[in-house]
Every structure is written in structure tokens, then in C-alpha cells.
Write a protein that binds this DNA or RNA. Structure first.
Lengths: 194, 194
DNA sequence: GTCTATAGGTGGATAGAC
DNA sequence: GTCTATCCACCTATAGAC
């Protein structure tokens, strides 16, 4: 097979569109915006992504794939539960540092205006996040590294909600420390006292 | 002075526009949408609100006014700190039950596309919420009804973030119980064990 | 205050040459 | 694959009659 190009046109389109959605929302960007940044004509974009709905669906699929890969990376590195949770929170913080909102958090706001396939992708993203967290939480509690009441799944729902909300509001204030304040409280409440 | 009409045209426009923003976002609705629901021509809307930015600013001002009035109501009713926090969370839950997002939470997602006056209104809303919560939290801790570490202000930031995030995601799932699960955890963690 | 009419621009999307 | 050219629907906003 031919050597894969480092960044083909479709990928560059996705890169630009992803950033635009994370900053302006799905209804806040246009093919014209993408066209300018990618330096290709609007009509050419439609060759790669015929419809905006299709582009949106591709964005979610790629984002979720990259996120899950990052979660596997955290698992592979090993270490204590608290450290893993800190790495997890860093995934969010690193997005916020680029003045972006989580792609799926942003799409959750646009949810009612999205086509069905995009809606399904958004909820699947949250479900995958919570499943990973729930497993980590249960394991952490079993070996005494974490402390919490109720099911791991319930706490996972709580964590994802809080992180997405903290991101949403911290971005309005342009304040990463504001986000980190929330992360610290979340993690401290899960860690047993020394 | 003349008897105030129960709902004048400007108010009806605000009612319809508010709902549209809470459901579809600021970039997801148009004067045409409002026009249809209010049963008045597009051009007539511009008589009451010349620009969309002005309409948006008016929406925020009215929303914050109504919210602060609800907070005063909670204060006036008195009772224990936990009960007050439950009422506070109910303000959010009642919005979610109408399948809406908090107006300012939604606008926080649209933040980067908003004109300056709207941005300022959004952050002012969160600041007012946190100020009210911080006072309630500090008072509740002083009299032993609440337990938490750090400043009331820090916990207030945490609460608003978590509630907005829980709302955002629960709405995607169309699940109010999902939101209430998060509320229960937030409040239980603040309430000392019996 | 509400209407008709329209301006002036941008939206997503398509046709067909190269 | 990328281009020019274009379609048509929709956008916010304005002019001016009633």
C-alpha cells in the first residue's frame, strides 16, 4: 500500500472544523470559515464531506477515538487511582488551555439542533467516558485508594457532569485555575484522608 | 398610572425568544422563529428589539432578575441550609423538566460568538449565583448544618459548575433523574452525617 | 405598533470544466 | 481533487405606508 501522507486534506479539514466547533459551536461556524483556514474553496470541502451533518458525525467519531486512545494510555501507564484521575482531568484541562470546550460538551448544548447520528455520537461519548471511570473507581475503592458512597457508575456520572460544567463556565471566565479548583475538590473528596 | 397589561408584546417576544435560546442556543434561532410563535411579522419584532444582540442582552437581564428574585424568596422562607440548597437545585431541575438548558449555561457555550454586553451579562449571572451560594454555605457551616473544607466561595464555584454540567448532559439523555442523582451526591457530601 | 416589501449578505449545497 | 459559477433558502435589518 502507498505510504500514508502525514496529513491528508480530509484530516486538515477535520482539524480546522473541530477547533471551530469547540470554540463557536456547531451552529456558529460555516463551510466558508473552514474554507478560509484550510485554504481550499468551499466547493472542494463538499467533495470530502458532502454535508455538514456528515462532517459533524466524522468529527465526533474521530474525537471519541482519540479520547479512548488516551484512556488506554492512562491504563497502560499504571499507577495509583488518584494519579489516573488526575491524568483524566488533564485531558479536559489541556482542551481548556486552548480556549476550547470539550467537543461533545459543546455539542450537548447544540443537542436539540443536531441530526440523529450526531446526537447518538454525543451520548455514546459520555457513556464511554463514564464506563471507563466507573471501572477505575470501583477498582480504586476495592484496593482502598479511593473512598466514595454509592456505585462507581453514579460517581462517574457525577464526575463527567462536573468536569464538563466546570469547563463550560471556566471558559467564560477565561480562567483555567477556576477549572483546576473544581478538579482539586472532586479528587480530594474521593481520596481517603492520610 | 395606566393598569399594567398582563403580557405586553415585548414580554411575549422575550418569553418566546428565551425558550428558543434555552433549547436551540443563541445561534440556533432566528427572528423568523420568534415571528411565527408570537404571531407578529419579523419587521415588527425589530420595533421592540432593533438588534438580535439587544434582544439577547434583554433576555439575560430579565432572566437574572427572575433568578435573583427566586433566591430572595428562598431566603425569605427560611429553614435549614440543606432545604435551601434543595430549593436552589430545584430552580435548575424545573428548567430541565421543560427540556431547557439554563439560559446562561447555554450562552456560556455560545460565549465566543456573543457581543460584549451579553458576555458580561453571562459572567455576572454566574457571579451573582456564586455570591449567594457562598453566603449560604458559610452561614450553614457556622451553625453546624453544613460541612465542607475550603472557602464558601470555592464550594460555590464547584456547585454552580456541577449543576450546569449535570443539566447540560442530563438534557442530552432526556433524563431528569440523571440530574437529580448528581444533586443528591452534591448535597449529601455537604451534609454532616446524622 | 404593525404591516408589506426589500435590501444586502451569508447559509449549505450542486453542476460541470479542468 | 480542486476550481469557478451559481442556486435558492434563510439571515438580520431597514424603508415607508397604514
Amino acid at each position: 500500500m502507498p505510504p500514508a501522507r502525514r496529513t491528508d486534506t480530509a484530516d486538515r479539514i477535520l482539524d480546522v472544523a473541530e477547533r471551530l466547533v469547540q470554540v463557536h459551536g456547531f451552529n456558529g461556524f460555516s463551510y466558508a470559515d473552514v474554507s478560509t483556514k484550510v485554504r481550499i474553496r468551499k466547493a472542494s470541502l463538499h467533495y470530502h464531506f458532502p454535508t455538514k451533518a456528515g462532517l459533524g458525525t466524522a468529527l465526533i467519531a474521530r474525537y471519541q477515538g482519540a479520547f479512548l486512545k488516551a484512556l488506554e494510555e492512562i491504563d497502560r501507564a499504571g499507577g495509583e487511582a488518584r494519579g489516573k484521575l488526575e491524568k483524566y482531568a488533564s485531558l479536559y484541562a489541556n482542551v481548556l488551555r486552548q480556549r476550547r470546550m470539550c467537543l461533545c460538551g459543546m455539542l450537548a448544548a447544540d443537542f436539540e439542533t443536531l441530526p440523529k447520528p450526531m446526537r447518538d455520537g454525543v451520548t455514546a461519548f459520555f457513556a464511554a467516558n463514564e464506563a471507563w471511570l466507573a471501572k477505575l473507581l470501583e477498582a480504586g475503592r476495592r484496593c482502598g485508594e479511593l473512598r466514595f458512597e454509592g456505585s462507581g457508575a453514579a460517581v462517574a456520572t457525577f464526575l463527567v457532569s462536573s468536569l464538563e460544567g466546570a469547563m463550560l463556565i471556566a471558559r467564560s471566565y477565561g480562567s483555567v485555575p477556576r477549572f483546576e479548583l473544581v478538579v482539586k475538590k472532586l479528587l480530594d473528596d474521593l481520596t481517603p484522608p492520610a
